[in-house]
Design a protein around this nucleic acid. Sequence first.
DNA 1: GCGACAG
DNA 2: ATCTTGTCGC
Length: 234
Amino acid sequence: MATYQLLHDWNVTPAEAVALQQQLRHQIQIQPLTKPVETIAGCDISFNKFEETVYAGIVVLRLETLEVIEEVGVISSATFPYIPGLLSFREIPSLLEAWSKLKTEPDVVMFDGQGIAHPRRIGIASHGGLFLNRPTFGCAKSVLVGKYDEPAPERGNWTPMRHYGEVIGAALRTKNKVNPVYVSPGHLIDLETAISLTLQCDGGRRGYGYRIPEPTRLTHNLVNALRRGERSPD
DNA sequence: GCGACAG
DNA sequence: ATCTTGTCGC
């Protein structure tokens, strides 16, 4: 079973959450990978509007072939509300429950959200990286903070996202003439590597291609099936 | 003060 | 995030 470090309690108020982020942000390390990546995991949650029950899941893939190595899902509950800038406090607790069920120890984890492309430089991917103590990065479908110039329309092109003068991520085109995804390092990885991994996880390199990279796309399908009762938490 | 605002 | 069919464009 995969393990993680519980760096702090999750039962906090929004104000306490912000204080924790200010404290934790200094522990985040943006650097090149120290080990080659063989497996990559995607994680996501799903839920019915107005309900506290959440369906969390993680899918582990072999980077080279994008074949699924393992899938885990859990039905849990989230009490913390969705507040822009505090997404990790709503999603990470249940994702950690799913993580505990993994037999495999993913080399790197892709999150559905931001890494350091966050007002306090600690989005869900960075926060999760500290708990998991391994390389993580975010691949979001929309922007939280930062500005960027539109990247060229062909797959593979990207432009830097800037916030207060700092390069915090990239607007990356994963498919021709389709809206870009927003990639940013989470922890123990750098922007260039996060971009490279995102492109390697995109089926586009093999003909069939979706805007959302496979780890996140497949996990999204998994948790939605769980929510609809089309699959069980095994 | 006004508007923006990951999922 | 979720609720949902058709439809415009390449």
